[in-house]
């Protein structure tokens, strides 16, 4: 079947989709957006969390056919989404139209001294920067889903209590960090957000 929907503000079309495919599969294997992660495919880990018409959902549990005519935001579009939060039409994400991470892209990756430093690469959303700064990223597999979930938390609740943060992120498993640095990162993003509002 064919599915048309919007991803990170850009209209997308997928053809020859098998009816049993999930939104996650379509994003990862057909749209070239592998940022949403395939850790459990049963809605238990939150690594594939995306916004579906603004609502955080597990992309692995949305049938591809269900996203027809709907809007999806993935981690790849999170920085833009955060930037244009108020706009009705968020700016284009980084959907390239090509599929997946190509080998060439993978081979070309080399860490640069600027990686991880603020201000020198493409601008990140506040929650993305806070995850780097607070040491909330280790293997990073849970990170995209946590970022989407945490960004939505701060959108609706600018100064959450620790228990509120824990509840909002209780659907996102992390196996590396023991969650302490993830809590730190959300606190940090909230504090920076507050500072920005006050100044």
């Amino acid at each position: 079947m064919r599915v048309n929907f919007t991803v990170n503000g850009r209209p997308q079309e997928a053809d020859d989709v098998w009816e049993g495919e999930s939104l996650l599969y379509v994003l990862r294997e057909r749209m070239g957006l592998p940022g949403s992660k395939n850790a459990c495919e049963q809605g238990e880990c939150g690594s594939c969390t995306v916004r579906l018409d603004g609502v955080p959902v597990c992309a692995c549990l949305v049938a591809a056919g269900q996203v027809q005519d709907r809007e999806v935001v993935t981690v790849e579009g999170l920085a833009d989404y955060a930037k244009h939060r108020q706009d009705t039409h968020p700016g284009g994400g980084c959907a390239s139209g090509a599929c997946g991470t190509t080998l060439d892209e993978a081979k070309r990756w080399q860490s640069k001294p600027t990686d991880g430093r603020a201000g020198e690469a493409a601008p990140l959303s506040p929650i993305q920067q806070a995850f780097i700064d607070a040491g909330a990223v280790q293997c990073g597999f849970c990170t995209p889903g946590l970022l989407v979930a945490a960004d939505e938390l701060l959108e609706n609740s600018p100064s959450p209590s620790d228990q509120d943060i824990r509840e909002a992120l209780s659907g996102n498993l992390c196996r590396c960090t023991g969650y302490e640095k993830i809590l730190d990162a959300v606190r940090l993003a909230a504090a920076r957000q507050e500072e920005a509002v006050q100044s």
Binding site: S111, D115, Q128, I132, G140, P144
Partner: peptide, 9 residues
């Protein structure tokens, strides 16, 4: 060094 790539997906 891989932080930015990991938070942008």
């Amino acid at each position: 060094p891989d932080g930015t790539l990991k938070v942008t997906g």
